[in-house]
């Protein structure tokens, strides 16, 4: 598939899949017994979380590839994945709080998954701040790659320590995904695929844009010389 094709294919697929997923969530999936209608947040919440973790993983891989190859395309991928990851994690935290308030009766709790998402958000948002603080292109890419790698290395430790940290506290969370009915599972898979396609389209768009921006900047410099 040529890049031009892919640029139109992914958004087109996303515009099909996202309404389908929303329709399935509200009209196909049954109401959850104990939680009621609020459970319908869960489908997109989990999809967003999955896409967010995936984009941080892509950020780490792009960082490693940039340090090895020093190609601009990997910096574009790194920047795009960090940015999208921060946006998605923000939405995960917001939608999670809005679910936790009626169900757990609290906006926030120090559950390992919540703690990990929050700390990840802080690490990668600080990466965005770092990007904005450096003008020089190769330096910005190198520093950002180092931060992305070390941030991702931190993830398992954060999760482990959050679990240990919590162990003296009473727990208010239970796993939301256990014992899903088959129609719920189908809905979950559809919304997850929809979200992944949407994010892939977003990622692709951002990468192209990033490369265009740096090409334009190059042209500008060449003209001024």
């Amino acid at each position: 598939m040529t890049p031009l094709n892919r640029a139109t294919f992914l958004p087109a697929l996303a515009t099909l899949l996202v309404p389908l997923a929303i329709g399935m969530i509200f009209f196909y999936a049954p109401l959850e017994k104990s939680m009621g209608i609020i459970q319908k947040i869960f489908y997109f919440h989990l999809s967003l979380a999955g896409a967010a973790f995936l984009s941080f993983f892509i950020a780490c891989v792009s960082g490693i590839m940039y340090l090895l190859k020093r190609q601009r395309i990997w910096d574009a991928r790194l920047a795009a994945s960090i940015e999208i990851g921060v946006v998605l994690t923000t939405l995960v935290l917001i939608s999670g709080s809005l679910w936790g308030r009626p169900i757990w009766n609290t906006w926030w709790t120090w559950d390992p998954r919540l703690t990990t998402s929050l700390i990840l958000w802080f690490i990668f948002a600080s990466g965005l701040i770092l990007r904005s603080a450096i003008d020089e292109e190769s330096k910005r890419a190198t520093f950002c790659a180092v931060m992305a790698i070390i941030g991702f290395v931190d993830v398992p430790i954060v999760f482990l320590s959050a679990r240990l940290w919590r162990s003296i506290h009473p727990t208010v969370i239970r796993s939301a995904g256990i014992g899903l009915e088959s129609s719920m599972l189908v809905t979950l898979v559809v919304s997850m695929v929809a979200m992944l396609v949407f994010c892939a389209a977003l990622f692709h768009l951002r990468c192209i844009q990033h490369q265009q921006e740096s090409t334009v900047r190059d042209l500008q410099q060449q003209l001024q010389l």
Partner: peptide, 15 residues
């Protein structure tokens, strides 16, 4: 940049 990375270590140290 440093505090988010160091947070898990600090939390363990506090405990």
């Amino acid at each position: 940049l440093l505090f988010p990375l160091i947070l898990p270590l600090t939390a363990l140290a506090v405990k």
